[in-house]
Each structure stands twice: as structure tokens, then as C-alpha cells.
Simulated scan of single mutants.
Amino acid sequence: MSEKKPTARREVKVAIAYPPSVNLLPPEVGMRKSAARSRGRAIFVALVAVGIAILAAAGANVYSLQRGVALENARSLTLSLTTQQGEYNEVRSANQLLSTTQAARLFAYSTEVSLKFLIDQMNSKLSSGMTISGYNFDTANPLQGFAPASSPLDQQSMAAFSLEIGANSVGDIDDWVRKLSSVDGVVQSTLLSTAVEEGGTFSGSVVVLIGDKALLHRFDEVIDGEEAAPEEAEPTPTESPEPDSETSEEESGS
């Protein structure tokens, strides 16, 4: 009878991640540790929040300072521009006042005539024995025009002389009235009436109409010159010729 051999036993190894441990401490210790960890996390979060708040406040202060500097620069620039604008306004006001003054001067003198020139010219036409005993001058002004012609035969005028003439004969007066048409500015001359004076002399009433050609236009050239001045080119300087020896000797001899 054969004997049975005993079978060998196989050991099964089970892998364990952590060695078995037994917590022998009381539960209160674990609770205190958990509370301490929670407090640590809370303190860390609070510190992070405080740091973020400090950084945000610092950034806000820096931004506020930058905006303050920018605002101050803008105020300085605005003040400078306002000052310059004030200077330009003063110059503009002065130019406008000058233009207004020039326009007012032109307007005021737009009907100005030279009485001396006209009287001298009319006196030059007098023959011997004739005199102008008196005259009255009526003219238009910038605010009121001269009286319109009362007759279709009268020329358009802007001033009129009413003269009293003394002469030896009516023919001399009539001849003088005809000569007045050659005086610059006179558009018409008319003998209204004659009368015999004591001593056999004659007197006559004459009306002389003055036209636009007698106007002086004193300030028109000033305005035209000011308008044309910017357009005129600056004159180029011309080199003066150098004196030669002959010219120097002649000047020294003289």
C-alpha cells in the first residue's frame, strides 16, 4: 500500500498600501488638529485677501496720483491756451477796431471836396474888374444825399455853389459862367439873374453844380496801400558799384 505524500500549501501575498495602524489617541486630539488646520487655512485666506486689498489700494493711489498729475498738466495747458486766446482776442479786437475806424473815416470823408481848390479855379477864370462878393456852399453828407435835380436839364450833382459876382458888364459875367465848365469837378454852371448896381456896375447870381470828380478821396489810397502791402514782394537789395580810382580822384579834386 502506497503512502500519500502531503500536498504543499501555497502562500497568497496580498499587497497592502499602508501598513495597518491603530489610532490610540482620544477623539478630542483629532478634533483639535482638524480645527487647527481649519484655522490655518482661514488665516492664510485672510492674509491673501489683505494682501490683495493692500495691492489694490496701492494701485488705486498710484492711479489717482497719475490722474492728478495729468489733470494738473491739462489745467496748465488750458490756462496757457486761455492766455494765448486772450492775447489773440486783444489783437483781433484791435484789428476790428482799426478796420471799423478806417471804414468810419472813409464813410465820414466820402463827400469831402476841396473848397479852396474850387474857389481858386473859379477865381482864375475871372477877368479884370470881376470879383466874387460872396458865396454859399451846400453839399451832401454821408447820412443824407444831395437834393435831386429839379429839372431834366440839370446834371446830377453832389454839391452846389451859390455865388454873387460883380462885373463891369453882363457879358463878362456870362463869359465867366461859360468858362466854369473847364474847372475840374464842375458839371454845370447857370446864371440865374443880374442887377445893375450903383456906379454902373452889374451883379449876378450864379449857381455852380459840383460832381463826383471834385471829391478828395484822401484816405482811399491809404486803404489801397494797406491792402496791397502784403502782396508786394520785398525789394531785393542792389549792390552799389565800387568807386574806381578816377572817380575818387575827381571827388577829392572837387
Rank of each mutant, 00 (worst) to 15 (best):
R32A: 15
A195V: 11
L126W: 01
E72G: 05
V208G: 01
D175P: 02
F137L: 08
V22I: 07
T7F: 06
P230T: 11
V69N: 13
A15Y: 14
E198V: 03
G51S: 09
D174H: 13
S124Q: 11
S205R: 09
Q144I: 11
S157H: 07
L106V: 00
L118D: 13
D174G: 11
F44D: 00
E242I: 13
A36L: 12
V177Y: 02
S157K: 05
T111L: 01
D174E: 15
L98D: 06
S133W: 00
D174M: 15
G171D: 13
V206C: 03
L216W: 01
A167C: 08
T83C: 04
E234C: 10
A94D: 07
A8L: 08
S93L: 09
R9I: 09
T247E: 15
S181W: 02
V208R: 03
L153H: 09
N73T: 10
D212P: 11
L192Q: 13
T238A: 12
E239V: 13
K13F: 06
A60Q: 09
D184K: 08
I132C: 03
Q144M: 11
G171F: 08
N123P: 01
Q156Y: 01
L55H: 00
E242T: 14
E197G: 15
L97Q: 14
A94W: 05
W176A: 01
E164H: 13
M130K: 04
L126F: 02
G225A: 12
L118I: 10
T83H: 13
Y135K: 04
E197T: 15
F219E: 07
S76A: 10
D220E: 15
M31D: 14
V208L: 01
A35E: 06
Q102K: 05
E164T: 15
L71N: 14
R178G: 03
E112I: 06
S193L: 08
I43S: 09
F44H: 06
Q66F: 12
T7G: 01
S169W: 13
V113Q: 06
T111A: 04
G211K: 00
K33H: 14
G40Y: 14
Q155N: 07
P19D: 10
S248R: 12
A49E: 01
Q102M: 15
A159Y: 04
D154R: 01
S93Q: 09
V29N: 02
L71W: 12
T190M: 04
G171T: 11
G185K: 06
S99T: 14
V187F: 08
S205F: 03
I43A: 08
Y88V: 13
F161G: 06
A228F: 04
S245F: 08
M122G: 02
S76I: 09
V187L: 05
I210S: 05
G68Q: 10
V196E: 15
A58F: 08
F146R: 01
T139W: 04
A149N: 08
S133L: 05
